[in-house]
Design a protein around this nucleic acid. Structure first.
Lengths: 130, 130
DNA sequence: CAGTATCCAAAATGATACTG
DNA sequence: CAGTATCATTTTGGATACTG
């Protein structure tokens, strides 16, 4: 995955250059805004912990491969924790870390805003911003 | 682009079902979290209005095709306005609508949070959330 | 300048089968 | 149950050339 870093070697211009580099902030952003990241986060925000199959069943259309991959990314980012109970059959639980909880605050707020403001599109009529 | 709507026809489960449908909220979310959407929005948030080539130059690595496409999406969502001055050569300016400004508030807040909290990843140590 | 059209490459995603 | 491996497909993105 490319990250907006100029391929020609030119320096990125303007603020927020943090996100034009290969750093953990950029990684986190990519993971969160990835196809399934936001939904995994939101499900765990609604209810945690959840087991692997519970997440899969609550997120429509996600494949095991993508769930697994998304989860791995989020765990690596420190947004989600993973706990294995050594049973047979194995039981694995996932939940939001304090960090993940913090992010989900922003995420949920944004989603709520979109939900509330997205009706009036296509024409020129926009209500107030925030 | 698929939207997490279950392909098997089963009903989506849990809250936020709005985003499991083909609605304007979902469209907006997809456009904002698209590869370049967030950067276009942020640049316009920093400084507006901007012309096409100014945006292109300020967003490292974006192609004209993608800029054009992203812009079209955001305009359609009502987040960005577009103004053509009938000159030769043509001058076109883009800026945030009040709606777009509202969204960028949330977006910028989230980005700031990520920027501030993304260092400590990979291990188990996370600071407090929000 | 501000795009659009076309074609190609790369990356993400999905279905399926398989393992501990 | 909780994944991983593999392969095919879909999507996305980019380079380039062309238009008003």
């Amino acid at each position: 995955m490319d990250n907006g870093i100029p391929a020609d070697g030119s320096a990125p211009r303007g603020g927020r250059d943090v996100f034009h580099t290969e750093c953990s902030a950029r990684q986190m952003l990519d993971h969160v805004t990835s196809r399934w990241g936001i939904w995994v986060l939101l499900r765990l925000h609604e209810q945690r912990p959840l087991r692997f199959y519970e997440l899969r069943d609550r997120i429509g259309g996600i494949s095991e491969k993508m769930l697994s991959q998304t989860l791995r990314n989020l765990v690596q980012d420190g947004l989600v924790w993973r706990e294995v109970e050594p049973d047979t059959p194995p039981k694995v639980a996932y939940g939001l870390t304090p960090l993940g909880g913090g992010l989900c605050g922003h995420l949920a707020a944004m989603l709520d805003w979109i939900e509330a403001n997205a009706e009036n599109t296509g024409d020129g009529a926009q209500p107030a911003g925030t």
